[in-house]
Design a protein around this nucleic acid. Structure first.
Length: 350
DNA sequence: AAGCCGTGGTG
DNA sequence: TCACCAAGGCT
């Protein structure tokens, strides 16, 4: 099938299939570069079904660049709550502000756009091609999987440098008449046909061009080295209630895991007695008898929390440490709570 | 380069 | 249950 113009035939097969069969997704109804930017950031390492409601709320509340650029960070984080990878939101806001103040719009120049915080090689190519029709590579996990099968590329896609190889391949193949449909077609193909396991080759619009299909090796590619498994950490939560029904909450550090988010007092130990000592010392207060409320495991990308949560009463509020305070359950909604904290809150019936 | 950074779905 | 993984980027 690799005739002199197989690349052109491949392009037409892919983009034709995409234009006919693409899923109806909210961000495919707009050509607003800013909205497309938002969608691409939300979609980083995040499933389509998860993103849809967030995208709808976010583009309604922050409908143009100016709205987001000068929104209170507190409100921004509430809109992002539950999506994960919270630095995405902070980088997006600061970059939207920078773009708005510098260019007054999303720059239609890959060099300029790609310099913005939170805009990496993938997002740069995706927004430039989808919003402006610029032929730039948008290589994500889908594209590496699809191309490794079609072109029989055996480099380890877990290695950072491998992405550049695929970017070069995309630039050889991309449809310069419609880079948007080409890039989105590659990703759509990876999402619905050329899946990691049991790819649906019989439904594939480009199987005639696929080396792996011809050799029956579609399940062997791509080559991807294993990541080592996460380490577990004990987390003992002591939820403390004062006589007026307020609960003590702590704000996490501004950097690192769950940066700036709020949680019930927590100590990194499996021993509840030790946790009580740590937390009562931290806030200079006296803790009554503790009662177990819930026990669960929370899995992050790179670590696991083994959480055990207890509730206890305190006779008075002591001297709260910095970055902490007492809140009524109705007031929790003002705080940005990560999922583990939401699980504890639910177990306490708050 | 390799570790950090969330969450939810899946087989 | 558990490993994998999903439209990655930063350091």
């Amino acid at each position: 099938m690799k005739t002199s113009d197989w690349k052109q035939e491949f392009r037409e097969a892919l983009t034709g299939w995409y234009r006919e069969e693409k899923r109806d997704l909210p961000w495919r109804h707009t050509r607003n570069p800013y909205h497309i930017w938002i969608s691409e950031v939300m979609l980083q390492q995040t499933r389509v079904d998860t993103v849809i409601p967030y995208y709808a709320r976010f583009t309604e509340r922050f409908s143009d660049m100016k709205e987001l650029a000068y929104a209170p960070e507190e409100e921004l984080m509430k809109m992002w709550e539950g999506l994960g990878y919270y630095s995405r939101a902070r980088n997006l806001q600061s970059s939207v502000r920078e773009a708005y103040e510098t260019y007054g719009e999303v720059p239609a120049d890959p060099e300029k756009f790609g310099k913005l915080k939170g805009v990496g090689p993938y997002t740069e190519g995706a927004v430039m091609s989808i919003a402006y029709g610029i032929p730039a590579p948008a290589v994500d996990g889908n594209v590496m999987r699809v191309l490794s099968r079609i072109l029989l590329i055996e480099e380890d896609i877990a290695k950072p440098k491998t992405r550049r190889l695929f970017e070069e391949a995309v630039m050889e193949l991309i449809d310069r008449e419609d880079p948007s449909s080409f890039n989105q077609g590659m990703m759509e193909l990876g999402a619905v046909i050329c899946t990691p396991r049991r790819p649906k080759c019989l439904l594939c619009p480009v199987r005639d061009f696929c080396g792996a299909y011809h050799e029956g090796r579609e399940e062997e590619l791509p080559v991807k080295s294993k990541k080592k498994k996460q380490q577990s950490f004990p987390q003992t939560v002591i939820a403390l209630r004062d006589p007026e029904g307020r609960w003590l909450m702590e704000q996490r550090p501004e950097e690192g895991l769950l940066a700036g988010m709020w949680q019930f007092p927590t100590a990194e130990t499996a021993d509840p007695e030790e946790a009580v000592r740590i937390i009562s010392g931290r806030h200079r207060l006296t803790v009554g008898p503790i009662e177990e409320a819930v026990r669960f495991r929370h899995v992050f990308t790179h670590r696991i929390w083994e959480v055990t949560a207890y509730a206890a009463s305190v006779p008075d509020r002591g001297t709260p440490a910095d970055r902490s305070g007492w809140f009524r359950p109705e007031e929790f909604d003002m705080l940005t709570l990560p999922n583990p904290t939401k699980k504890v809150r639910a177990a306490l019936g708050l």
